[in-house]
Amino acid sequence: MSTATLPPPTTTGTLRIGSHELKSRLIIGTGKYATHEQMGEALERSGADCITVAIRRERLIDAEGRNLLDAIDTSRYTLLPNTAGCFSADDAVRVARLGREILTGLENPGASWVKLEVLADTRTLLPDPIETVKATEQLVADGFEVLCYSSDDPIVARRLKNAGAASVMPAGSPIGSGQGILNPNNIRICLEYLKEGDPDYPVIVDAGVGAASDVAAAMELGVDGVLLNTAIAHATDPLAMADAMRHALIAGRLSYLSGRIPKRLYATASSPTEGVIALGR
């Protein structure tokens, strides 16, 4: 374990979303790992204290299949159940309620919230903005804290916030595509709109991360956190990549807080221009 190199968790501050306060600004998905053991180790190395889970039919035939809950210490992580696989507001609301029921039984603090994902299309896995807004309204009315997976469209982001979303989570690029932040300008405008007069409103980049540099780049834009899954789970070495993501998040956050220099077209010398020896012959 390389945890000796970990800076204190306070370095990047906590992430507050609704009633939840997370120690890490990284939220990690639990899908697509080769084994439960690999997943557990990767989660540990990522430093995350919040992990996403999906709701699916219990496999009633395959009695040997290990349940995810046998592999996760639910007293250690706040679970964030998602509505992945839903293509309508009504189905997403049903899945959210099922997730809340399971998490309530587990006495996990994640029972109060949901990562709302209402997709439009299996090829792009892009969110359906109309159904997402509808589902947000229904879930907020039902007492959920709703974290909305969205496209990076600032107007949709604002609609979701107005519908009561506890956080809007614009995609950097399509889910699992590893293309990083394709349109940083849109993320910037999302941040402006969502944080106007409400600087603590949490905005999280969800989806698209391929490498650690994408996490740092997202954090440097000023987002409050990053949610990712495939970039770790399908890396050649998921454990080392989990380390990389943890460091990238810290680097990106500190870089953002430190105030970067403006970009200029021409060079400015780093060494003094005065006191140079007599040059030439």
Partner: peptide, 10 residues
């Protein structure tokens, strides 16, 4: 009836 549980997901 639907009987569901938690599985890995993102």
């Amino acid at each position: 009836l639907e009987v569901v549980t938690l599985v890995g997901g993102g």
